[in-house]
Write a protein that binds this DNA or RNA. Structure first.
Lengths: 232, 232
DNA sequence: GTGCATTTTTACACTCTGTGCAAGTTTCTC
DNA sequence: GAGAAACTTGCACAGAGTGTAAAAATGCAC
């Protein structure tokens, strides 16, 4: 990545209320980071997992090998940034939910919100590729685990803010972990059913699976309730 | 590990109904494997995570570096074998439960069964050390994930055997994932409360946390039920 | 036991990962 | 524009992980 002048003109996002002037340094860094993940993803597609080196990525991104390691600690970390992006997005949605809403309902809403092609596409691709690669899969697991920790924090903070009391730690951690597990389960089933199909109907199915999974969790997995049994 | 003559006299286990004569080769391999994990654990204790190399382990286990890699693909893999042992044990307990029992109840019973010092001790030690080390932590996550997959298989197979029908995949995966997550949550809380205390009362607390976590799961995390609130 | 097939260990060579360091560039601030 | 701060790069080096072929250990038949 040659320095200056070629940073894509990213207009300042107006999501949060803070407009920190994106300096050229920040823009360059963001562009380099993006170039790295793009190159990594491209190589993953063309050569398959495990069949390319950090040097290959660096060359493709037009940076030095050393600079790669200034951004990511490994090939997997570079790829996992895609998943991290998705989950950070989910977290943000979660935090936007009304504070008096049950946690489970907030999670359901946040997840459903994300089942659109733009958001799901990169994540879906990586998810499917990770299935066949132990290294990648571990990074994915780590990303989900990190997200669990963040949900725990968010929920704890929200509860304390609204009630002034402290939520039982076991309840908190068990619930957050279960939510994430159910989200993963929904995605697993979706992939098993549809591969990486990103059509509207396929995404509708994913949405339904996410809702169903949260429903199962909310009803304590009562064996009788077989809910929406239409499989495909 | 020098060859022959020093393999500990492991009497043939009578767990399963197959008594395959443990040849010297098998005994040697088992002994070497054990020597490696022992050496690794020892070094982990004495030098701390990340402060020793594969060569150190190999030297301590009296084998060559290359032989180490014939047994494990990395330092973390060698250490994770402890966790794998624990979880394999849990799986075995799960499979021993009566086939008509609800899955959740089987899981609860299997987990509670394992809360004794002999079984928990190595696992507990590794668990606490993994908290502070990303590399180790990823291996731990992988071990739990592997266990989830095995629960899924076991439960699916059991259900098909007893009813002849197929269990809904989403139900299966969501439940298995949640069970594991709740188990982890219980262990997390236990560690946060008691460190690696392995006294009888501490283990009783762990047992109670496991039961509570499964209870939460079974009741759909109804926010009102605050169950056994005695914290310590 | 001897001889031979099979399995396991080992040394060696090699590629790739990941990091410290110091020198070179770019960007920021004044 | 000059100096400070941040970023990139090349270089060197320790360590991970793997293929290969030779040596050692074990199993098996006689």
């Amino acid at each position: 990545m040659p320095p200056t002048q070629n940073a894509p003109a990213i207009p300042p996002r107006s999501e949060t209320a803070e407009p920190p002037p994106p300096s050229r340094r920040e823009l360059n860094k963001a562009a380099t980071r993006q170039a790295i993940t793009d190159a990594a993803l491209q190589l993953l597609r063309s050569k398959g997992p495990g069949n390319f080196t950090v040097e290959d990525i660096a060359d493709a991104a037009a940076i030095s090998r050393r600079t790669f390691f200034n951004y990511f600690s490994s090939t997997e970390a570079a790829l996992a940034s895609v998943t991290h992006g998705f989950l950070d997005n989910a977290l943000a949605q979660f935090r936007l939910r009304p504070a008096d809403e049950p946690i489970l309902e907030s999670a359901r809403a946040a997840l459903v919100q994300l089942a659109d092609p733009m958001t799901v596409a990169p994540m879906a691709e990586l998810y499917s590729l990770a299935q066949s690669n132990p290294q990648l899969n571990r990074s994915e697991l780590e990303a989900w685990d990190h997200c669990t920790a963040e949900i725990i924090d968010a929920a704890r903070e929200r509860f304390a803010r609204t009630t002034g009391e402290e939520l039982d730690e076991l309840y908190l951690r068990a619930l957050a972990g279960s939510i994430i597990s159910c989200g993963k389960a929904a995605m697993d089933v979706w992939f098993a059913e549809r591969g990486a199909d990103l059509s509207a109907t396929s995404l509708a199915r994913l949405r339904q699976l996410l809702i169903d999974a949260m429903g199962l969790l909310g009803s304590g997995f009562t064996p009788t309730a077989n809910l929406s049994t239409d499989r495909h």
